[in-house]
């Protein structure tokens, strides 16, 4: 197991390097540098040259990359062009919020998808199955941002149950945690609604496949209760595709979080990335892309390990 993890980590190094080089090149090969944005209306070639010199943008590309990468390895992601704050600190403030959103959504969404999908697979081709399929098609086709708008409209404006945006500072106020949770319910709930449909469909079809397997018949003929047969024997095996799917869907979850953070004005990485994209704030954009890439690699690794825990047939060497 430990050897497997070490091997996977070593394999991840080229991917990590690839992400760094690719993002760096993408940002620096494109015309229209940050100098124009930084200077604003008082634009002149001399000023642009001065800003470029100050930011080190006049050096050859490989030197720029070398400096940036060396600093990255030392935990220094540079300084934001637009806010003059260290990028690491900006990400450090935003990342926990995004992680809470994404992790909460993954957990709730999976519990829902597993329970509903299992029942749906068990009662395949009944009215229950068809009804759930219809509903899940609906949510699956729903544009995420429109879904978020509707959620705000219904639960915040019309019903007034939850705040529609922002986040309160946990450390500053005494009633912090409750209000923090209240602020997270709608954004996380939207992400759940957006993801649960496709996971449910996978769960359903995987359950349908599992229920006709020999080991299920064996379990039944041993006289086990239906509940045990379904939730112990069939479920465990039908979870496998879901785990792979989880690993693969991490990038799109971050993408979804970006849209949701923008709508709910939720101060996570997505919102930071969005504002930085408008400002052409290269260091922040680079930093976030690299961090998200690392999180995806880690997420895939966790998914692989989880795979082995659920499926006893897999042995790590």
């Amino acid at each position: 197991m430990v050897r497997f993890i070490i091997r996977r980590l070593l394999e991840a190094i080229p991917s990590f390097l690839g992400i760094c080089v690719f993002t760096f090149l993408l940002l620096h090969l494109v015309p229209g540098g940050p100098a124009e944005v930084a200077i604003g209306p008082h634009y002149s070639p001399a000023r642009v040259a001065a800003v470029n010199r100050a930011l080190g943008l006049n050096k050859p590309l490989y030197t720029q990359f070398g400096i940036w990468f060396w600093n990255l390895l030392h935990g220094n992601l540079g300084v934001s062009y637009s806010s003059n704050q260290p990028v690491l600190r900006m990400i450090g403030q935003a990342l926990p919020h995004t992680l809470e959103l994404v992790v909460a959504a993954i957990i709730v969404s999976h519990v829902l998808a597993i329970v509903i999908g299992t029942v749906q697979g068990y009662y395949a081709n009944t009215w229950f199955d068809h009804a759930v399929t219809a509903v899940s098609f609906f949510f699956w086709s729903m544009p995420l941002f429109w879904l978020a708008i509707l959620v705000v409209l219904i639960f915040s404006i019309n019903l007034g149950w939850f705040p529609s945006g922002g986040i309160t500072n946990v450390t500053a106020s005494h009633s912090g945690f409750g209000s923090y949770v209240a602020h997270t319910v709608l954004p996380a709930g939207t992400l759940v609604l957006a993801t649960v449909a496709s996971w449910m469909r996978y769960m359903r079809s995987s359950m349908v496949d599992a229920l006709v397997q020999d080991y299920v018949r064996t379990a039944r003929s041993k006289g086990l209760s239906e509940l045990r047969v379904v939730f112990k024997h069939a479920l465990r095996n039908s979870l496998l595709p879901l785990i792979t799917l989880l690993g693969l869907s991490i990038p799109s979850l971050f993408g979804g979080a970006l849209v949701i953070e923008e709508i709910f004005n939720y101060p996570g990485m997505g919102l930071l990335f969005w504002t930085s994209a408008f400002n052409r704030d290269y260091p922040v954009l680079l930093g976030i892309t690299v961090i998200v890439g690392v999180l995806t690699i880690v997420g895939n690794l966790l998914a692989d390990i989880l795979y082995g825990l659920v499926d006893p047939r897999i042995q790590y060497r």
């Binding site: 690839g18 690719f22 990038p251 799109s252 971050f254 993408g255 979804g256 970006l258 892309t289 890439g293």
Partner: peptide, 9 residues
């Protein structure tokens, strides 16, 4: 590698 970067980003 390209798949690890969220396409929306």
């Amino acid at each position: 590698i390209l798949l690890t970067i969220p396409s929306l980003f």
